[in-house]
């Protein structure tokens, strides 16, 4: 079941488009914003809310990078792996993150705090390497060391 809040937000987005299905991506993002990820049930509920089929919504949900169809941690760390960050030492950053969190890409820490994922270019190439933690972009991580990284992550409960 979609919460009333979710339903309201989806209805508002739906009003922005000529056709209901157009709000599919917004609806998925709304649900994800509230729950962290999008479950099978949520996909079906969104389909019902937008007068379309579950398969049609899932076809969309599984296409896009930023829709999580499996549970993720409370904070998702997206490490940019595109060319400018790579040039500026993203491999090292990633290695530090793996060591710090004890997980690999695609995994979630056992305490459910962080999920580590790759992302494509974050559009902040002049201050590479960069990563996104939740909604925050962290830049200039070229010289970062384990301690600074730990401090940085400590801000995320």
């Amino acid at each position: 079941m979609l919460s009333e809040q979710e339903q309201r937000e989806i209805a508002a987005e739906r009003a922005h488009y000529e056709q209901p299905q157009a709000a599919a991506i917004e609806a998925l993002k709304i649900v994800q914003a509230h729950r962290g990820w999008v479950s099978d049930e949520a996909v079906a509920d969104i389909a019902a809310a937008l007068d379309t089929s579950t398969a049609a919504i899932d076809a969309v949900a599984t296409f896009y990078n930023l829709i999580y169809r499996q549970p993720v941690g409370r904070h998702v760390i997206h490490v940019c792996d595109s060319v400018s960050c790579w040039l500026m030492g993203q491999p090292r950053l990633l290695e530090l993150l793996r060591a710090e969190l004890g997980i690999d890409l695609g995994q979630t820490t056992p305490d459910g705090r962080f999920t580590l994922l790759p992302t494509v270019c974050l559009g902040t190439c002049d201050r590479a390497p960069a990563m996104l933690v939740g909604r925050d972009t962290h830049r200039d991580l070229e010289g970062v060391d384990a301690q600074r990284l730990a401090t940085l992550l400590a801000a995320y409960e």
């Binding site: 990820w37 599984t62 990078n65 829709i67 999580y68 169809r69 499996q70 993720v72 792996d81 790579w86 993203q90 491999p91 090292r92 990633l94 290695e95 690999d104 890409l105 695609g106 995994q107 999920t115 994922l117 790759p118």
Partner: peptide, 10 residues
């Protein structure tokens, strides 16, 4: 190190 596993949450 720069290898990106094809693991997405999908």
């Amino acid at each position: 190190l720069s290898e990106v596993l094809e693991t997405t949450p999908m």
